[in-house]
């Protein structure tokens, strides 16, 4: 029974999870430089300790209406292979261990929009964590 450590973050009213191995760091929101002529969900780039890092707004990516950034807004820096990007989320609240057995396949109607980007769901007590498929989130976005 394998354990999986995940970072839990919030987007609107749902909780999502990314395996901790894919996460480089969690940052507060900072000045974002807009990059012209890129998909709308690419908010731009930030200076992450000297490295220019692209930023994706997950709300826009998932077709959720945009809100103003708050004190809780975080940028989760994720890495996938050679690619490093930041994901803007409403809040990053938790690190928890889940057992891989507890992962269930995506129910048919978990969310009308985000279903493509999901690897499965995990129920912990009353919480429902949606496991993000990072490949899919970043895919098809080659500009």
């Amino acid at each position: 029974m394998a354990e999986l450590k995940v970072i839990v973050f919030q987007l609107k009213d749902k909780e999502y999870a990314i395996p901790v191995q894919q996460v480089r760091s969690i940052e507060k929101i900072q000045h974002i430089t807009r990059v012209p002529r890129v998909p709308k969900f690419v908010k731009g780039v930030i200076n992450l300790r000297g490295v220019v890092t692209p930023i994706i707004d997950l709300r826009t990516r998932f077709g959720i209406e945009e809100t103003a950034f708050s004190d809780n807004t975080r940028v989760i820096i994720v890495a996938l292979g050679e690619i490093e990007v930041g994901l803007i989320v409403d809040a990053a609240n938790d690190v928890i261990d889940i057992s891989t057995d507890a992962i269930e396949p995506t129910p048919e109607v978990v969310d009308s929009v985000a279903v493509d980007y999901i690897n499965g769901v995990v129920k912990i007590g009353k919480r429902l964590l949606i496991l993000l498929n990072l490949e899919k989130v970043l895919e098809t976005t080659k500009v």
Partner: peptide
């Protein structure tokens, strides 16, 4: 560079801090 994610952005050759 803009990194491996944003490749070939039109008319932008890179970035600076």
């Amino acid at each position: 560079s803009l990194g491996n994610y944003l490749t070939s952005v039109f008319a932008i050759s890179g970035a600076t801090i």
